[in-house]
Amino acid sequence: MEKNVLITGATSGIGKATAIRLSKEGFNLILCGRRTQRLESLKNQLSSFTEIYTLNFDVRNQADIKNAIKSLPEKFQHIDVLINNAGNAHGLDLIQEGNTDDWDAMLDINVKGLLYMSKAILPEMVSRGNGHVINIGSTAGKEVYPKGNVYCASKHAVDAINQGMRMDLNGTGVKVGAINPGLVETEFSDVRFKGDQEKANKVYQGYKALQAEDIADIIWFVISRPYHVNIADLMVMCTAQASSTLVDKN
């Protein structure tokens, strides 16, 4: 049976790697993102493997999300798997020196964006009595590190929402789980350090970080389990990482 998977933040990093992995497993994909050119490029790349539909919107805009979901053609209207992947980190500052625009961006995308997407998709899953939500969290949702303040708070919120969502949906037939990666070598640090490539590169020097493809493999594993199996909360780090502040770079 064909399954439709919707991925937010599909234009780079974990989202893009997941789209590539799942396309080769035969899942039909709804790829969502803000960067139209990247979406179209990815669609062209993957269309030979499976059916692709793209939606261009910002998860911070609830009205745009509703309109985008309503615009889906009939074939894509029932969504079997929602992957709440869109997220960001802006800045790495002491709380007293933090930029409130950065705070707004992290809370609006990481927390409210995840909620808006879930609100748009869940009612149809519940009415159908079937579905699967995967929330992409972070090890930053399990512990706090210096200067991580608001980013860590946003990912702690994802952890709480994931647990609450699983409780509220118990008995509906909808599975809910989270994948919480540690250090993954993507554009994440480019965004966090606002284009300072030297700072971004230093994050991943001296050890082998997780790659986006590693998380994509895990996502495929999670969604390919039998119906009675739910990976509720999975944390994954590279071998060199023991915690947010302890990384072997020798």
Results as ranks from 00 to 15, higher is better:
K175D: 00
A153W: 00
S71P: 00
A86N: 06
V111W: 02
S127G: 02
L55F: 04
S118E: 05
L82I: 02
G195K: 02
D108M: 12
V174C: 11
L210Q: 07
E40V: 11
Y145G: 15
G26W: 01
H228L: 06
K70R: 11
A105S: 09
N180R: 04
S47T: 13
V150P: 05
P146K: 04
P73K: 00
C32V: 15
A178M: 14
I30E: 13
N88I: 15
N170M: 13
N170V: 07
Q62T: 10
G129W: 01
D168C: 08
S71F: 00
L107V: 15
A10M: 08
E40Q: 14
A216K: 12
T100N: 09
S189G: 02
G15Q: 07
A140F: 12
F193P: 03
M235S: 12
N56F: 00
N4W: 06
S71E: 00
I218R: 03
R21S: 12
N99C: 11
G164Q: 11
M165H: 00
D248W: 07
K70F: 04
I136H: 10
G177M: 12
A242V: 08
N56Y: 00
E2L: 14
S41E: 15
V133H: 04
G129L: 03
T8V: 03
L92C: 10
K249T: 15
V59R: 00
A120C: 10
R35P: 00
A19E: 03
F57A: 08
F27A: 01
A63Y: 02
E40I: 12
V229K: 01
D101R: 08
M1H: 10
T239C: 07
Q77P: 02
N67Y: 01
R192M: 15
N162P: 02
D214W: 07
V126A: 08
I69L: 14
I65D: 10
G171E: 09
P73D: 04
I30A: 09
W103M: 06
V236N: 03
T239F: 05
C238G: 14
D248C: 02
C152Q: 06
K119F: 09
T8F: 02
K24W: 03
C238A: 13
V111C: 11
D168P: 05
V222S: 10
I69D: 07
N149L: 04
T100I: 14
V59D: 09
K142D: 13
H156F: 15
M125N: 06
M1P: 07
K208L: 14
L107T: 13
M167G: 03
M167N: 12
L92H: 11
K202R: 14
A140L: 11
F188Q: 05
N250G: 12
A105V: 12
S224C: 10
G87D: 08
T239I: 12
N85V: 06
I223L: 11
K208N: 13
E213L: 04
T11G: 01
K112R: 14
H156K: 11
Q197P: 00
M237K: 11
N135W: 03
H78F: 15
K194V: 13
Q241I: 02
K208F: 04
L234T: 06
V174W: 00
I69P: 07
S23G: 11
Q205D: 14
P181Y: 03
V5P: 09
Y116D: 09
N162T: 15
Q163W: 08
L94E: 10
L39P: 08
A160H: 06
A209F: 10
W103H: 01
L115A: 09
E40R: 05
